[in-house]
């Protein structure tokens, strides 16, 4: 199992202000699986995703990602998991002073043993795969919302991560470009057998999933 969450509890705040967000969550995802997570606003989807991605520290239960225990883990373990995980944010979160190509290269620059030409080649290749071969040298502000999201899909995939975590990637896109973006993501993920956990409110894209889970009031339900 690539993602194995067991009996995870998480709350914000402390003392009398403690607000439980996740209540004894159990979630297992196999290699290559595409899992969509839905649920009402405030149910804790983003919180769960940030814990799985090593961005937020959980302190009880068990969260084993790619064989590493993330509960009460060191910064080093979290960095290791982050590097093997591709993120796609709700807002594209591209670096505005870098071109599309340079943005994608930011993922590859974490792999210090690649040469500059290998990085260029791989970044160009993945940008072409998301249909942006003629927009490589554009800055994000000169791209449309759908194009930006495709750049951030390319950025997430460029490092050949084992897991893709996506938080409402289609929220800021219209129906067609949202669907296109998710289709590209699915195609590329299936090619490389990458695991995907994708949070969405968008019922039009549920069809790409192998499995859909629902988070309601901090508790996971299968659909």
């Amino acid at each position: 199992m690539v993602i194995n969450v067991q009996n995870l509890n998480f709350s914000f705040g402390s003392g009398s202000l403690t607000q439980p967000v996740l209540k004894s969550i159990d979630l297992g995802i196999q290699k290559g699986e595409i899992v969509l997570m839905t649920g009402p606003s405030g149910s804790g989807k983003t919180t769960l995703l940030t814990i799985i991605g090593g961005l937020r520290q959980a302190s009880n239960g068990s969260v084993v990602i790619l064989g590493e225990q993330l509960v009460n883990s060191s910064e080093l373990t979290k960095v290791k998991i982050r590097r093997q995980t591709g993120y796609i944010f709700q807002q594209h979160n591209l670096l505005k002073s870098l071109t599309a190509l340079q943005n994608v290269c930011m993922t590859l620059e974490l792999q210090l043993d690649l040469t500059e030409s290998q990085r260029q080649y791989r970044a160009q290749h993945i940008l072409a795969a998301v249909g942006l071969e003629d927009r490589m040298h554009y800055f994000p502000e000169a791209l449309s919302g759908g194009q930006r999201q495709r750049v951030s899909i390319a950025r997430a995939l460029a490092g050949q991560p084992k897991i893709i975590l996506a938080d409402e990637p289609t929220a800021s896109l219209d129906r067609q470009s949202g669907h296109d973006a998710v289709e590209i993501l699915k195609r590329l993920a299936k090619e490389s057998n990458t695991t995907i956990l994708l949070v969405t409110h968008d019922y039009r894209i549920l069809n790409i999933a192998d499995r859909v889970v629902e988070l309601e009031d901090g508790v996971v339900k299968a659909v």
């Binding site: 290791k80 982050r82 995980t85 993120y87 944010f89 979160n93 670096l95 930011m106 974490l110």
Partner: peptide, 8 residues
């Protein structure tokens, strides 16, 4: 964002 990608 870069930290989330694994930059230290």
């Amino acid at each position: 964002t870069l930290k989330a990608m694994g930059y230290e």
